[in-house]
Simulated assay, not measured.
Amino acid sequence: MATGLGVDVHPYYQRGASFPGVEYAWIKMTDGAAVYALERDSRVWTADAHARRLREAGIPFGGYCYAQPGDGAVAARVLLAECDRLGGTGVAPAIDIEDNRDIHTWSTREAVDHGRAFCAEVIRAGRRPAVYMNASKMQACRPDEWPEDPVIWVARYGRAPEASGVYRGHYDVHQFREDGQLPGSAGRVDWNQAYTLAHLTASAPGGGTTPNPDPTEDDDMITAPAGTDDHINVIVKGKTSLYLACSWGQKVDVHSILYYGDTGQDLKGTGVGGGYDGGLRTPPEKWTFQPNRPGPVRIPVGAAMATIRYTAAHSFAVGAA
């Protein structure tokens, strides 16, 4: 089952990394309007090695530009050329706008102008852009309200972006930690959680249009009652996406989603791979669904029924489409 977990990597600091369990990735490919190339340790480090490993692993990836003062449209053109050269067209090309006292501190107006110029150029090239900022800068700039409609990739570690009112807008991908690990990596790795498919392009597996965030428009819903470590069974045969929808101010903590296929003539149920079971981990994990993050959860091929184990203080809706 797809979990929406991805990484973003730096060609030097995460050199040597391999990508088990990763579903998508961004690679730093450019600095402003310059292709990334760092001469260190008697060699020049570029995005080529990570791109090759991701291609070989069949993992969709794209590039990001570490924003620097200048023309955002020019930066977009340089990044798009690198994405094309490296085959990084499965994930939306992103502009990373963040303050660095050694490089540049962005005013809100400057960040908005630069980001929108980048986005407009990516759209002119026939693609959808992505914008990365930390939660406080995202709230100041609100790219979720820009007419360019970029994919929103927000960083906040240890807490949801909206916690304590830091960010009040929509987001598609949350960079939730900076101390992750990947085999072979020379340094710690940023982990990202995707709550929509907006970051994936049409060339990526399962990519293309963003799913309807209101599954009631797609198919019938069933209601799950409030409960603690309770469960509900949902028929998912012939469906591709599962949604959990709750009201504003509520949430659903999912401990596991396990899938089963049709029973064969031997009367034995057939398990279907890809289930999520955070309850078996130590310590137990949970997957939280909130009103602005109802899914989708991809349903594995061959699944006929899903068993969802959850904790929720209020009833909520479950739908498959």
Results as ranks from 00 to 15, higher is better:
Tyr12Pro: 07
Tyr12Ile: 08
Tyr13Met: 09
Gln14Tyr: 09
Arg15Pro: 02
Gly16Phe: 12
Ser18Asp: 11
Pro20Asp: 02
Pro20Trp: 03
Val22Lys: 05
Glu23Gln: 10
Glu23Thr: 00
Tyr24Phe: 15
Tyr24Leu: 04
Tyr24Ser: 01
Trp26Cys: 04
Trp26Pro: 04
Trp26Gln: 07
Trp26Asn: 09
Trp26Arg: 05
Ile27Pro: 05
Ile27Asp: 00
Ile27Gln: 00
Lys28Pro: 05
Met29Ala: 14
Met29Tyr: 09
Met29Glu: 08
Met29Trp: 00
Asp31Met: 12
Ala33Met: 12
Ala33Leu: 06
Ala33Lys: 13
Val35Trp: 05
Tyr36Asn: 02
Ala37Tyr: 03
Leu38Gly: 07
Glu39Ala: 13
Glu39Thr: 15
Glu39Cys: 11
Arg40His: 15
Asp41Asn: 06
Ser42His: 15
Ser42Cys: 09
Ser42Tyr: 13
Arg43Trp: 14
Val44Lys: 10
Val44Pro: 04
Trp45His: 10
Trp45Arg: 05
Trp45Asn: 07
Thr46Val: 11
Ala49Ile: 08
Ala51Leu: 01
Ala51Tyr: 10
Ala51Glu: 01
Arg55Asp: 07
Arg55Trp: 03
Glu56His: 12
Glu56Thr: 15
Glu56Cys: 03
Glu56Phe: 04
Ala57Phe: 05
Gly58Leu: 12
Gly58Gln: 07
